[in-house]
Design a protein around this nucleic acid. Sequence first.
DNA 1: CATGAATGAGCTTTCATTCAT
DNA 2: GATGAATGAAAGCTCATTCAT
Lengths: 194, 194, 194, 194
Amino acid sequence: MSSTSPQQPRRGNTRQRIQDVALELFAEQGYEKTSLREIAERLEVTKAALYYHFKTKEDIIISVFDDLTRPIDELIEWAQGQPKTLETKREILRRYSEAMAAGAPLYRFMQENQATMRELSIGETVKRRLFTLVELLRNDEGPLADQVRCVSALFTLHAGMMFLQHVEGDPEETRLAALDVATDLITRAHHGDA
Amino acid sequence: MSSTSPQQPRRGNTRQRIQDVALELFAEQGYEKTSLREIAERLEVTKAALYYHFKTKEDIIISVFDDLTRPIDELIEWAQGQPKTLETKREILRRYSEAMAAGAPLYRFMQENQATMRELSIGETVKRRLFTLVELLRNDEGPLADQVRCVSALFTLHAGMMFLQHVEGDPEETRLAALDVATDLITRAHHGDA
Amino acid sequence: MSSTSPQQPRRGNTRQRIQDVALELFAEQGYEKTSLREIAERLEVTKAALYYHFKTKEDIIISVFDDLTRPIDELIEWAQGQPKTLETKREILRRYSEAMAAGAPLYRFMQENQATMRELSIGETVKRRLFTLVELLRNDEGPLADQVRCVSALFTLHAGMMFLQHVEGDPEETRLAALDVATDLITRAHHGDA
Amino acid sequence: MSSTSPQQPRRGNTRQRIQDVALELFAEQGYEKTSLREIAERLEVTKAALYYHFKTKEDIIISVFDDLTRPIDELIEWAQGQPKTLETKREILRRYSEAMAAGAPLYRFMQENQATMRELSIGETVKRRLFTLVELLRNDEGPLADQVRCVSALFTLHAGMMFLQHVEGDPEETRLAALDVATDLITRAHHGDA
DNA sequence: CATGAATGAGCTTTCATTCAT
DNA sequence: GATGAATGAAAGCTCATTCAT
């Protein structure tokens, strides 16, 4: 059995392992407080090995991004081809909530390292994406309060994931509750138009 | 007393100036990316001078906290002596919104450096305070969605300050709109009880 | 009495000592092969101490330059105010030879690290200075061979210092012999005009 | 010849290509500042491929040397069989000048990386060769100035190649002018004997 | 003939912190 | 109330080199 073999034969999965461990540590301790030494140690490789797979520290987080935020990009692309109906908006929230659940550690990282994000080259990208989403949700000409509701709907999803999970029981249940509230917000914002 | 002495080249305000500049830079670039050298340089003093006034880097941010979050502490204290009526909750949101506006850079800092906050000794304090506030807003036994609404109300205030300010025009107007939405959320959560 | 005290009380001469040791090592081993660790060790301070006095490694060599090449700058300034007579040119060579003797290690460093010099920010400066000197020596419209003689005169001074010193006896005697040859070259180049 | 095989997709010229690119980069940026990664990248092979052809980085430069300095070795061997007449000396300069022109990048590299050369195992060889050449040119018992002239003659050839090429027009013309001046120097040194 | 993956040693640089003056 | 000088630790990164495949 492969069980007791002490040293894994380092298959071609090192790159993936780096991404996993890095995201884990970045989410846990923050980007700047996580050193490459730490990542390398946990993987039982040398720092130089990281540099074989990624050109810089920033490159590591970028690559994780590119992998985990594709669903959002696809969501945006899809949404831009739809009419701006209430049903479309509900679908956006539903899918966004799912994407967040799937890439939870990354979204937690983004939430908790906003200051860092701003310096990172991806910061701009993320911001633009968020703005686009808001644009797809809000009514440019409705009352200010309704516009706030749209932003708040997105933030509610984040709140649901980040904050409540530390408190309540079942994460999935909480996520759905947050999605309900967000949907409710968007619905009320939508009716405000008429 | 030094009162009427005509030359007042540098008053004993260095401590205050350090706090101001530090908060400014922390909010701008993040806590870890801001070095004491940078703070000292902008103040045109030496690093050692900082150490005359504060024992560590962490001490600086702690002292800023102690100054700027007192309103929240007072708010909590006040709220704990009140009945948990809807009116009380509205007042909590109103005051919280005001406190945030008054200490905007600090709240922005907290929002954007959550990962750092967790490592800092004040992190716990802040978290506790936030939990207490949520406790004061929510109905323990109401439906989950209503509980989410309470959290979301708080997050909406943050959203209003952080996100919208980069987009819309008048900050104060935006703040009030966010307060409206938050109040609306709490109101709906409250009615759900009955 | 301070006599036998083993550890020197580190007077305010550290900056100077860094410059001395750095130049010594740079000249001995080359710029890139000399690490800051090495310099620090020889001075019995930490690497960080070097960074208290100089912002970068390059800064160290720059500061040495600024100190040791001032005579050349003054020479150029003086020469530019003189008529381009043979006597002026002889004086240029004489003074240049003396400046080289005074700053021997630096000139040796420059001679032996030309590739490095080109990347350094001072490289341009040095090159410009050399060109200016050549300009002051040569006759723009004379035969090509005479122009070569002027360049060769300068190079002869370098040759005298760098190459011969490793071979012959008295450095000063060699220097003067080189100066003689250089002067001879310039004289012949000058007569070629007529 | 490797005969008439029709497909010659990559001939066994990799070794040669490595040498060419390496010399090019070494001359351009210096030996230490040029990394094997850089060389490999420009050749579109991996670093490991370099190690198939050469045992170490130093080996690469050594092999280039062995190829390009053979003319000098042959020149020395020839000269040692000749009488030390003026005509012999002129021939030495003539041939040396030609060898330099043929291997220009290498000689430029040597000129600009003297500090590095000293650490390299070939450094000694080169130095010895240069000394031998000087020995063949100079009159051991003549006046010091005449001995300087011999060294200076060699340096003038270098000066001609290195310095003037950046300034004047036709390189070949400049080379010949430098050769003229060098020959003149050696002639005068020779006459001094009598 | 060559690559993919990795290493160990070393580099320059920055940081928070200390302490005698 | 502050400075000048220094430190120890660590960071991100690069390099020449190795070796199984």
